[in-house]
Amino acid sequence: MNDMRILERSVGIKEVKISARGCQVYYGDNHAIKDVDIDIEDKTVTAFIGPSGCGKSTFLRCLNRMNDTIDIARVEGTILLDGEDIYDPKVDPVQLRAKVGMVFQKPNPFPKSIYDNIAYGPRIHGLARNKADLDEIVEKSLRRGAIWDEVKDRLDAPGTGLSGGQQQRLCIARAIATEPEVLLMDEPCSALDPIATAQVEELIDELRESYSVVIVTHSMQQAARVSQKTAFFHLGHLVEYGETGHIFTNPSDPRTESYITGRIG
């Protein structure tokens, strides 16, 4: 009882960063996201869990309008970022994506040098005034992406020449180089070994101090370790959303319970 109160208090002061109401996503006739309402808080790590194909990635991609690039995808409902509707016709998705960065499910480095992979975002957003600035951003981002030591001697080597796990960390470093306010991570650790996973989790924890982080994961342990809030998706529905501790110890929906205990998935 006592623990819960403390948790509630610490969560209570957080403000809402993203707020979705009545969100629906259709891929042609396939209704992939059904009526999702969610408030994602600032300076919080929110985990999306759920069985494969339940729409975690789809909903994540709604939050920075990456679904715009899929012709057959249609998004309905409202999604507010800091109280502003991101699907408003006045909103330029390019500007939105500078604020809401993304790490994709499959590592997708540019077929350019490691340096250019990181420097590309800051360059197009004009974040660096000169070469030294840019060098600093690149180093800082690679360090935070827990990959600096491995690549510091070969920044000119192609990013595509790295191993899968290194590529994923490169993509994480690339996403944080542009200093987004929200970072969406779609299974960032699925290709990583335990050491790199621990490093990325450390990074996520650190990012929480200034950003809002949304992470999709298939690992219950990871969700329990890094997140403060957890959302459980099932067949396109947001079944349950709440404190991570609460979801994992005392889920209110039977579907959540069976998923967490390994009976559906």
Binding site: V94, F104, N108, G121, A177, T178
Partner: peptide, 18 residues
Amino acid sequence: VPPSIRDAALGVGASKMQ
């Protein structure tokens, strides 16, 4: 050209043209 490259560019806030 793999679509993931386009996603990657858009994901860091590049415009379609970029």
